[in-house]
Lab assay of single mutants.
Amino acid sequence: GKELVLALYDYQEKSPREVTMKKGDILTLLNSTNKDWWKVEVNDRQGFVPAAYVKKL
């Protein structure tokens, strides 16, 4: 099944490779191999968020 993460904080994208999320959002985790930036999918968009801003559910 898909792995989900919870947004712990708001995050505003700073580049086209990133995505914006709001605290409390549930996101689909696509890739967590990089310890600093995790790739997630939110609202049919894929991009990176800081790993410290999310936690695995």
Rank of each mutant, 00 (worst) to 15 (best):
W37Y: 07
W37G: 00
F48S: 03
V19F: 11
F48D: 04
N43D: 14
V19H: 03
E3R: 11
V49C: 03
W37V: 03
L27G: 13
Q12F: 15
Y11I: 01
G24D: 06
L27E: 00
T28K: 11
K55F: 10
L30T: 05
G24R: 02
D10M: 04
Y53A: 14
D44F: 10
K22C: 11
L57Y: 09
K55E: 14
Q12S: 12
K23T: 06
E13Q: 14
T33N: 12
V49T: 01
L29H: 01
G47V: 04
R45V: 08
D10N: 08
Q46M: 09
A51D: 02
V42Y: 11
K22E: 06
V54W: 01
N43V: 13
E3I: 14
V40W: 00
G1D: 12
Y53L: 14
T20G: 08
W38I: 05
V49P: 01
K2Q: 11
L8K: 05
L30V: 12
V40Y: 01
K39D: 04
T33K: 11
K56M: 12
D10L: 02
L57P: 03
L30M: 07
S15C: 11
T28V: 15
G1T: 15
D10K: 03
E18N: 05
Y53W: 08
R17Q: 13
Y9A: 13
V54N: 00
R17F: 14
L27I: 07
V49D: 01
L29K: 02
L4Y: 15
K23L: 06
M21S: 00
L6S: 05
E41R: 09
W38G: 00
D36A: 11
E18L: 05
L30Y: 04
R17C: 14
S32Y: 08
T33Y: 10
K14V: 09
L29D: 00
S15Q: 08
P50E: 02
Q46T: 12
L27K: 00
K39R: 11
N31R: 07
D10I: 02
Y9C: 14
A51E: 04
I26A: 03
A52L: 12
V5H: 03
K14I: 07
P16M: 09
Y53C: 14
K55S: 11
K55T: 14
E13C: 12
V49H: 00
E13A: 15
L30E: 03
F48I: 07
E41F: 06
S15M: 08
L6K: 08
V5C: 13
D25W: 11
E3F: 10
G47F: 08
T20R: 06
G47A: 04
V49G: 01
F48V: 08
L6W: 07
I26N: 03
R17I: 12
P16A: 13
Q46S: 12
S32A: 12
K2L: 13
V19R: 02
D44M: 12
K35W: 07
V19C: 09
D44Y: 09
M21R: 00
K22H: 11
K35Q: 11
G47M: 05
A7R: 01
V42R: 15
Y53K: 08
P50V: 02
K35C: 10
Y9T: 07
R45Q: 08
M21F: 10
Y53V: 07
Y9S: 08
K35L: 10
L8F: 04
L30P: 00
S15N: 12
A52F: 09
L6V: 15
L8W: 04
Q12N: 14
S15R: 09
A7S: 06
P16W: 09
Q46E: 12
K22N: 08
L57W: 08
V42P: 00
L4M: 12
V5E: 00
E18I: 04
Q12D: 15
Y9V: 11
N31A: 10
V42C: 11
T33E: 15
Y11Q: 00
T33H: 12
K56W: 08
V19G: 02
S15L: 09
D10T: 06
E3P: 11
W38R: 01
K23S: 07
D36T: 13
N31D: 15
L6F: 08
E3S: 11
A52K: 15
K2V: 14
N34I: 06
K22A: 08
K56C: 11
V54C: 15
K56V: 13
T28C: 10
S32D: 15
V49E: 01
E13P: 14
G24V: 00
Y53T: 09
P50K: 04
S15F: 06
K39L: 15
V42M: 14
K23Y: 05
K14T: 12
T28N: 08
Y53F: 13
D36N: 13
V54E: 02
K14Q: 15
K2Y: 12
K22T: 10
W37Q: 03
V40T: 00
A7C: 13
Y53I: 09
D36C: 13
G24A: 03
K55P: 02
E41S: 10
V49M: 01
V42E: 04
A51F: 02
G47N: 01
E13G: 15
K55H: 11
K2G: 10
D25Q: 15
F48C: 12
T33P: 04
P16S: 12
Y9W: 11
P16I: 10
W38K: 01
S32V: 07
E13Y: 05
K22G: 05
L57K: 04
W38Y: 08
Y53M: 14
G1W: 13
K35Y: 08
P50G: 02
D10G: 06
N43F: 13
R17M: 13
L57C: 14
M21G: 00
T20I: 03
N34V: 05
V49I: 10
G47P: 00
E18A: 06
E41K: 08
D44G: 15
F48P: 00
R45D: 04
K14F: 05
S15W: 06
Y11R: 03
Y11H: 04
A7D: 00
D36Q: 11
W38A: 03
T20H: 05
N43H: 14
I26R: 05
L8C: 08
E18Y: 05
N43S: 10
K56H: 09
L27D: 00
K14D: 06
A52N: 14
L4E: 07
S32P: 06
L27P: 01
D25I: 04
D25S: 08
E13W: 05
K56Y: 10
D36Y: 15
T28Y: 11
V54D: 01
K39N: 07
N34R: 09
K55C: 15
T28D: 05
Q46C: 11
A52G: 12
Y11G: 00
V5W: 07
Q46P: 07
R45K: 12
Y53N: 07
V54H: 00
K55R: 13
G47Y: 05
L8H: 03
I26D: 00
N31E: 15
K56L: 14
K2A: 11
P16D: 13
D10V: 02
K35S: 13
A52S: 15
E41A: 11
V40K: 00
L29T: 01
V40P: 00
G24S: 03
R17G: 15
L30R: 04
K23D: 02
L29W: 01
G24L: 02
Y9L: 10
W37A: 02
D10R: 03
Q12W: 13
N31T: 08
W37D: 01
T20N: 06
G47W: 04
K39H: 10
Q12L: 13
N43Y: 12
Q12T: 13
W37K: 03
L4R: 09
Y9M: 12
S15I: 05
E13N: 07
N34F: 08
K2H: 12
A7I: 02
Q12M: 13
N34D: 15
V40A: 02
S15P: 04
G24N: 06
L8M: 09
A52H: 13
W38T: 03
A7G: 03
V19S: 02
D44L: 10
L30N: 02
I26F: 06
K35G: 10
E18D: 05
Q46L: 07
L29M: 04
V19W: 04
V54F: 05
N43A: 13
S32W: 09
R17W: 15
L8N: 03
P50W: 03
K35P: 14
V49W: 01
K22M: 09
N34Y: 09
K2T: 11
D44A: 10
I26C: 06
